[in-house]
Protein backbone atom coordinates (compact mmCIF):
# COMPACT_ATOMS: atom_id res chain seq x y z
CA UNK A 1 0.00 0.00 0.00
CA UNK A 2 2.95 2.31 0.55
CA UNK A 3 3.37 2.98 -3.15
CA UNK A 4 -0.21 4.15 -3.48
CA UNK A 5 -0.62 7.20 -5.74
CA UNK A 6 -4.11 8.19 -4.80
CA UNK A 7 -6.52 6.63 -2.39
CA UNK A 8 -9.43 7.52 -4.64
CA UNK A 9 -8.10 5.36 -7.47
CA UNK A 10 -8.19 2.18 -5.45
CA UNK A 11 -10.90 -0.34 -6.15
CA UNK A 12 -13.54 -0.98 -3.48
CA UNK A 13 -11.82 -4.27 -2.62
CA UNK A 14 -8.47 -2.57 -2.22
CA UNK A 15 -10.00 0.10 -0.03
CA UNK A 16 -11.64 -2.55 2.07
CA UNK A 17 -8.41 -4.51 2.40
CA UNK A 18 -6.54 -1.37 3.43
CA UNK A 19 -9.27 -0.53 5.92
CA UNK A 20 -9.05 -3.99 7.53
CA UNK A 21 -5.25 -3.66 7.62
CA UNK A 22 -5.54 -0.34 9.40
CA UNK A 23 -7.84 -1.60 12.11
CA UNK A 24 -5.83 -4.80 12.53
CA UNK A 25 -2.75 -2.62 13.08
CA UNK A 26 -4.62 -0.72 15.79
CA UNK A 27 -4.93 2.47 13.76
CA UNK A 28 -8.00 4.56 14.46
CA UNK A 29 -10.54 5.34 11.75
CA UNK A 30 -11.59 9.00 11.61
CA UNK A 31 -14.89 10.56 10.54
CA UNK A 32 -13.87 11.56 7.00
CA UNK A 33 -11.94 8.35 6.24
CA UNK A 34 -13.21 5.75 3.83
CA UNK A 35 -15.06 2.98 5.62
CA UNK A 36 -17.18 0.03 4.53
CA UNK A 37 -20.87 0.82 4.42
CA UNK A 38 -21.52 -2.03 6.85
CA UNK A 39 -19.12 -0.43 9.35
CA UNK A 40 -20.70 3.01 9.02
CA UNK A 41 -24.22 1.64 9.36
CA UNK A 42 -23.31 -0.48 12.39
CA UNK A 43 -21.60 2.50 14.05
CA UNK A 44 -24.51 4.85 13.37
CA UNK A 45 -26.92 2.34 14.82
CA UNK A 46 -24.79 1.61 17.85
CA UNK A 47 -23.72 5.17 18.66
CA UNK A 48 -26.99 6.96 17.95
CA UNK A 49 -28.77 4.44 20.16
CA UNK A 50 -26.11 4.83 22.83
CA UNK A 51 -26.37 8.64 22.60
CA UNK A 52 -30.13 8.89 22.64
CA UNK A 53 -30.24 6.39 25.53
CA UNK A 54 -28.12 8.81 27.57
CA UNK A 55 -30.59 11.58 26.77
CA UNK A 56 -33.62 9.42 27.56
CA UNK A 57 -31.76 8.01 30.57
CA UNK A 58 -31.64 11.48 32.08
CA UNK A 59 -35.43 11.43 32.39
CA UNK A 60 -36.03 8.69 35.03
CA UNK A 61 -33.30 10.20 37.20
CA UNK A 62 -34.38 13.73 36.54
CA UNK A 63 -37.52 12.87 38.43
CA UNK A 64 -35.36 12.75 41.58
CA UNK A 65 -33.27 15.84 40.96
CA UNK A 66 -35.62 18.35 42.62
CA UNK A 67 -36.65 15.78 45.26
CA UNK A 68 -33.23 14.67 46.47
CA UNK A 69 -33.37 14.68 50.28
CA UNK A 70 -30.42 16.91 51.22
CA UNK A 71 -28.57 19.85 49.72
CA UNK A 72 -25.55 17.66 49.04
CA UNK A 73 -27.66 15.00 47.33
CA UNK A 74 -29.45 17.64 45.30
CA UNK A 75 -26.10 18.89 44.01
CA UNK A 76 -24.76 15.39 43.38
CA UNK A 77 -27.71 14.14 41.38
CA UNK A 78 -27.91 17.38 39.39
CA UNK A 79 -24.29 16.91 38.37
CA UNK A 80 -24.90 13.28 37.58
CA UNK A 81 -27.91 13.87 35.36
CA UNK A 82 -26.08 16.76 33.71
CA UNK A 83 -23.31 14.29 32.84
CA UNK A 84 -25.86 11.98 31.22
CA UNK A 85 -26.94 14.83 29.00
CA UNK A 86 -23.30 15.62 28.39
CA UNK A 87 -22.61 12.03 27.37
CA UNK A 88 -25.56 12.22 25.03
CA UNK A 89 -24.02 15.36 23.53
CA UNK A 90 -20.65 13.68 22.94
CA UNK A 91 -22.17 10.55 21.44
CA UNK A 92 -24.70 12.30 19.24
CA UNK A 93 -21.89 14.48 17.84
CA UNK A 94 -20.03 11.29 16.92
CA UNK A 95 -23.15 9.78 15.34
CA UNK A 96 -24.01 13.00 13.53
CA UNK A 97 -20.62 13.15 11.83
CA UNK A 98 -21.13 9.58 10.61
CA UNK A 99 -24.58 10.46 9.24
CA UNK A 100 -23.38 13.51 7.39
CA UNK A 101 -22.90 11.73 4.05
CA UNK A 102 -26.63 10.92 4.18
CA UNK A 103 -27.50 14.61 4.69
CA UNK A 104 -28.75 13.95 8.21
CA UNK A 105 -28.16 15.90 11.42
CA UNK A 106 -29.52 16.20 14.96
CA UNK A 107 -32.93 17.26 13.73
CA UNK A 108 -33.23 13.87 11.97
CA UNK A 109 -32.05 12.01 15.08
CA UNK A 110 -34.84 13.62 17.09
CA UNK A 111 -37.40 12.86 14.41
CA UNK A 112 -36.21 9.22 14.31
CA UNK A 113 -36.59 9.02 18.07
CA UNK A 114 -40.15 10.35 17.92
CA UNK A 115 -41.14 8.06 15.05
CA UNK A 116 -39.80 5.02 16.90
CA UNK A 117 -37.10 4.29 14.30
CA UNK A 118 -34.39 5.13 16.79
CA UNK A 119 -34.61 2.92 19.86
CA UNK A 120 -33.33 3.65 23.34
CA UNK A 121 -32.03 1.31 25.97
CA UNK A 122 -34.48 -1.03 27.73
CA UNK A 123 -33.66 0.23 31.23
CA UNK A 124 -34.87 3.74 30.43
CA UNK A 125 -38.39 2.58 29.67
CA UNK A 126 -38.85 1.55 33.29
CA UNK A 127 -40.38 3.46 36.23
CA UNK A 128 -38.25 4.85 39.05
CA UNK A 129 -40.87 5.38 41.77
CA UNK A 130 -38.68 5.93 44.87
CA UNK A 131 -35.43 7.54 45.99
CA UNK A 132 -34.15 3.97 46.25
CA UNK A 133 -34.50 3.72 42.48
CA UNK A 134 -32.44 6.88 42.05
CA UNK A 135 -29.64 5.25 44.04
CA UNK A 136 -29.99 1.91 42.35
CA UNK A 137 -29.85 3.40 38.88
CA UNK A 138 -26.68 5.22 39.81
CA UNK A 139 -25.09 2.16 41.29
CA UNK A 140 -26.15 -0.77 39.11
CA UNK A 141 -27.47 0.65 35.84
CA UNK A 142 -24.39 2.84 35.66
CA UNK A 143 -22.34 -0.13 36.78
CA UNK A 144 -23.68 -2.16 33.87
CA UNK A 145 -23.04 0.77 31.53
CA UNK A 146 -19.45 0.97 32.73
CA UNK A 147 -18.96 -2.70 31.86
CA UNK A 148 -20.21 -2.28 28.28
CA UNK A 149 -18.52 1.06 27.72
CA UNK A 150 -15.08 0.11 28.98
CA UNK A 151 -15.30 -2.86 26.62
CA UNK A 152 -15.28 -0.40 23.72
CA UNK A 153 -12.62 2.03 24.98
CA UNK A 154 -10.26 0.71 22.31
CA UNK A 155 -12.83 0.74 19.53
CA UNK A 156 -11.40 1.04 16.03
CA UNK A 157 -13.46 4.17 15.41
CA UNK A 158 -11.38 7.02 16.87
CA UNK A 159 -14.12 9.57 17.66
CA UNK A 160 -16.14 6.93 19.53
CA UNK A 161 -13.11 5.75 21.49
CA UNK A 162 -12.32 9.35 22.44
CA UNK A 163 -15.90 10.06 23.51
CA UNK A 164 -15.90 6.87 25.60
CA UNK A 165 -12.66 7.91 27.24
CA UNK A 166 -14.34 11.07 28.51
CA UNK A 167 -17.52 9.23 29.42
CA UNK A 168 -15.87 6.42 31.37
CA UNK A 169 -13.84 8.92 33.38
CA UNK A 170 -17.09 10.54 34.51
CA UNK A 171 -18.78 7.19 35.08
CA UNK A 172 -16.37 6.58 37.93
CA UNK A 173 -17.99 9.53 39.71
CA UNK A 174 -21.45 8.19 38.82
CA UNK A 175 -20.71 4.80 40.28
CA UNK A 176 -19.53 6.37 43.53
CA UNK A 177 -22.49 8.74 43.62
CA UNK A 178 -24.79 5.71 43.34
CA UNK A 179 -22.85 3.72 45.93
CA UNK A 180 -23.03 6.65 48.35
CA UNK A 181 -26.82 6.87 48.11
CA UNK A 182 -27.23 3.10 48.41
CA UNK A 183 -24.91 2.77 51.39
CA UNK A 184 -26.58 5.63 53.25
CA UNK A 185 -29.87 3.76 52.76
CA UNK A 186 -28.66 0.25 53.62
CA UNK A 187 -26.99 1.61 56.75
CA UNK A 188 -30.10 3.62 57.62
CA UNK A 189 -33.54 2.89 59.00
CA UNK A 190 -35.58 -0.21 58.27
CA UNK A 191 -37.69 1.80 55.89
CA UNK A 192 -34.61 3.01 54.03
CA UNK A 193 -33.22 -0.53 53.75
CA UNK A 194 -36.53 -1.77 52.42
CA UNK A 195 -36.43 0.98 49.83
CA UNK A 196 -33.19 -0.40 48.40
CA UNK A 197 -34.27 -4.04 48.38
CA UNK A 198 -37.49 -3.03 46.74
CA UNK A 199 -35.66 -1.13 44.01
CA UNK A 200 -33.21 -4.02 43.56
CA UNK A 201 -36.10 -6.45 43.00
CA UNK A 202 -37.76 -4.04 40.60
CA UNK A 203 -34.61 -3.51 38.50
CA UNK A 204 -33.33 -7.08 38.45
CA UNK A 205 -34.92 -8.20 35.21
CA UNK A 206 -34.01 -4.96 33.46
CA UNK A 207 -30.41 -5.37 34.57
CA UNK A 208 -30.27 -8.87 33.11
CA UNK A 209 -31.71 -7.54 29.87
CA UNK A 210 -29.28 -4.64 29.83
CA UNK A 211 -26.57 -6.59 28.00
CA UNK A 212 -28.92 -8.01 25.38
CA UNK A 213 -29.64 -11.65 24.63
CA UNK A 214 -26.80 -14.16 24.46
CA UNK A 215 -27.69 -15.28 20.95
CA UNK A 216 -29.10 -13.27 18.07
CA UNK A 217 -31.71 -16.00 17.61
CA UNK A 218 -33.37 -14.98 20.88
CA UNK A 219 -34.69 -11.70 19.57
CA UNK A 220 -34.01 -12.05 15.86
CA UNK A 221 -31.26 -9.47 15.58
CA UNK A 222 -28.02 -8.52 17.21
CA UNK A 223 -25.18 -6.19 16.38
CA UNK A 224 -22.66 -8.16 18.34
CA UNK A 225 -21.11 -10.07 15.42
CA UNK A 226 -20.48 -7.02 13.25
CA UNK A 227 -19.12 -4.97 16.12
CA UNK A 228 -16.69 -7.72 17.08
CA UNK A 229 -15.59 -8.25 13.45
CA UNK A 230 -14.61 -4.60 13.11
CA UNK A 231 -12.87 -4.29 16.47
CA UNK A 232 -15.53 -2.02 17.88
CA UNK A 233 -15.85 -4.27 20.88
CA UNK A 234 -14.25 -7.49 22.04
CA UNK A 235 -16.64 -9.30 24.36
CA UNK A 236 -20.01 -10.92 23.69
CA UNK A 237 -23.24 -9.96 25.46
CA UNK A 238 -23.03 -12.96 27.75
CA UNK A 239 -19.40 -12.32 28.64
CA UNK A 240 -20.31 -8.78 29.65
CA UNK A 241 -23.25 -9.98 31.73
CA UNK A 242 -21.01 -12.48 33.51
CA UNK A 243 -18.47 -9.72 34.19
CA UNK A 244 -21.25 -7.63 35.68
CA UNK A 245 -22.31 -10.47 37.98
CA UNK A 246 -18.76 -11.11 39.13
CA UNK A 247 -18.23 -7.46 40.02
CA UNK A 248 -21.59 -6.62 41.56
CA UNK A 249 -23.21 -9.74 43.05
CA UNK A 250 -20.63 -10.07 45.85
CA UNK A 251 -20.99 -6.35 46.62
CA UNK A 252 -24.79 -6.52 46.71
CA UNK A 253 -24.64 -9.48 49.10
CA UNK A 254 -22.05 -7.78 51.29
CA UNK A 255 -24.33 -4.83 52.02
CA UNK A 256 -27.16 -7.16 52.99
CA UNK A 257 -29.24 -7.29 49.82
CA UNK A 258 -31.00 -10.47 48.81
CA UNK A 259 -30.74 -11.68 45.23
CA UNK A 260 -34.12 -11.46 43.53
CA UNK A 261 -33.27 -14.76 41.76
CA UNK A 262 -33.08 -17.37 44.54
CA UNK A 263 -31.71 -20.02 42.15
CA UNK A 264 -28.73 -17.95 41.14
CA UNK A 265 -25.28 -19.37 41.91
CA UNK A 266 -21.73 -19.49 40.63
CA UNK A 267 -20.85 -22.76 38.94
CA UNK A 268 -17.27 -23.58 39.90
CA UNK A 269 -16.79 -25.97 37.01
CA UNK A 270 -17.82 -23.70 34.14
CA UNK A 271 -16.78 -20.57 36.06
CA UNK A 272 -20.10 -19.04 35.11
CA UNK A 273 -23.00 -17.56 37.00
CA UNK A 274 -26.13 -19.60 36.53
CA UNK A 275 -29.31 -17.53 36.56
CA UNK A 276 -32.88 -17.51 35.35
CA UNK A 277 -33.34 -15.89 31.96
CA UNK A 278 -35.50 -12.80 31.80
CA UNK A 279 -38.51 -12.81 29.52
CA UNK A 280 -36.89 -11.84 26.20
CA UNK A 281 -40.27 -11.32 24.55
CA UNK A 282 -40.95 -8.64 27.10
CA UNK A 283 -37.56 -7.15 26.23
CA UNK A 284 -38.57 -6.96 22.56
CA UNK A 285 -41.77 -5.18 23.51
CA UNK A 286 -40.00 -2.74 25.81
CA UNK A 287 -37.49 -1.57 23.23
CA UNK A 288 -40.31 -1.14 20.72
CA UNK A 289 -41.48 1.68 22.99
CA UNK A 290 -44.09 -0.50 24.67
CA UNK A 291 -42.47 -0.41 28.11
CA UNK A 292 -44.26 0.98 31.17
CA UNK A 293 -42.82 4.48 30.81
CA UNK A 294 -41.89 4.57 27.11
CA UNK A 295 -44.72 6.78 25.93
CA UNK A 296 -44.57 9.18 28.85
CA UNK A 297 -40.84 9.81 28.46
CA UNK A 298 -41.04 10.20 24.71
CA UNK A 299 -43.80 12.68 25.30
CA UNK A 300 -41.54 14.71 27.60
CA UNK A 301 -38.83 14.89 24.95
CA UNK A 302 -41.33 15.69 22.23
CA UNK A 303 -42.90 18.48 24.26
CA UNK A 304 -39.58 20.10 25.04
CA UNK A 305 -38.71 19.77 21.39
CA UNK A 306 -41.85 21.51 20.22
CA UNK A 307 -41.98 24.13 22.96
CA UNK A 308 -38.53 25.33 21.98
CA UNK A 309 -38.96 25.12 18.24
CA UNK A 310 -39.27 28.90 18.01
CA UNK A 311 -35.83 29.31 19.58
CA UNK A 312 -34.16 27.12 16.98
CA UNK A 313 -36.07 28.77 14.18
CA UNK A 314 -35.30 32.29 15.37
CA UNK A 315 -31.58 31.64 15.76
CA UNK A 316 -31.18 29.63 12.58
CA UNK A 317 -28.44 31.29 10.50
CA UNK A 318 -30.85 30.96 7.57
CA UNK A 319 -32.99 33.65 9.23
CA UNK A 320 -29.99 35.96 9.38
CA UNK A 321 -31.00 39.16 11.12
CA UNK A 322 -28.83 39.17 14.21
Amino acid sequence: MANMVSFDRLSEEEKHARFMERIAAGEKIEADDWMPEEYRVALIKLISMHGISEIMGALPEKEWVPKAPTLRRKLGIMAKVQDEMGHGQLLLRVAEDLMKPYGKNREDIMQDLFSGDLKFHNVFHMPAPTWGDAGLIGWLVDGAAIITQTNMLHASYGPYARALQRICAEEVFHAQHGEAIIMALTEGTQEQRAMVQDAFNRWWESLLMFFGPAQASTTGSSKQDVTIKYNIRTKTNEELRQDFFSKYIPRALSIGLQLPDSTMHFDEESKMWVYQQPDWNKFKQIIKNNGPKSKERLRLRQLSYHNNEWVREALSPMNKVV
Binding site: R106, E107, R312, E313, L315, S316, P317, M318
Partner: peptide
Amino acid sequence: MEAKKAFYQE
Protein backbone atom coordinates in the same frame (compact mmCIF):
# COMPACT_ATOMS: atom_id res chain seq x y z
CA MET B 1 -37.27 21.99 7.99
CA GLU B 2 -34.05 23.34 6.40
CA ALA B 3 -34.12 26.47 8.55
CA LYS B 4 -34.58 24.37 11.67
CA LYS B 5 -31.72 22.09 10.67
CA ALA B 6 -29.50 25.12 10.15
CA PHE B 7 -29.69 25.94 13.88
CA TYR B 8 -27.21 23.12 14.36
CA GLN B 9 -23.90 24.60 13.17
CA GLU B 10 -20.75 22.68 14.02
